[in-house]
């Protein structure tokens, strides 16, 4: 009956259900965008509060260096999350892009796929957020 539904090859690792933790993965795919959100809020809030009131306390360079260091840490975290998600997707092992089957292993790999793409866009977002810090040197 199953085979008449579609003509896909049997899952290459159909018997390996060792990663059936999709509930956990569902939370995990939100990690990278959450880091991006924190990066955005922290950077913008820090610079606007500094420029509004506290620009006499420290040089702009100190704040920029601190925020750029934070950015480097966050980018490393996003890259790691993205790499883990890429492994979970396992596109090179299975050759499957879209994982259309509804079984636990497919859901697991699909969440890896989604997590990888979200990590990618979060990485780009954080880099774009940081460009003003690198290019602009003053509050003006």
């Amino acid at each position: 009956m199953r085979d008449s539904d579609h003509d896909r090859q049997p899952h290459p690792r159909g018997d390996a259900h060792e990663f059936a933790e999709e509930r956990e993965s569902l939370w995990r795919i939100t990690l990278a965008p959450t880091i991006w959100a924190f990066h955005f809020v922290i950077s913008y809030a820090a610079v606007s509060v500094y420029c509004f009131r506290y620009d006499h306390l420290a040089a702009m360079g100190t704040l920029r260096a601190a925020l750029i260091a934070m950015t480097a840490l966050m980018l490393a975290a996003i890259a790691w999350i993205g790499w883990r998600a890429f492994q979970r997707w396992d596109v090179r092992g299975t050759g499957e892009f879209s994982n259309p089957e509804g079984n636990a292993e497919d859901r697991h790999q699909f969440l890896g796929h989604a997590g990888f793409l979200l990590a990618l866009i979060s990485f780009i977002g954080v880099v774009y957020d940081t460009l003003p810090l690198i290019v602009l040197a003053s509050c003006r």
């Binding site: 880099v127 460009l131 003003p132 290019v135 040197a137 003053s138 003006r140």
Partner: peptide
């Protein structure tokens, strides 16, 4: 978009000169 963003940002200091 990254190149346009950098280009736009580099214009800002001149536009906001004292």
């Amino acid at each position: 978009l990254g190149a346009l963003l950098v280009y736009g940002l580099t214009l800002m200091p001149d536009l906001r000169a004292t």
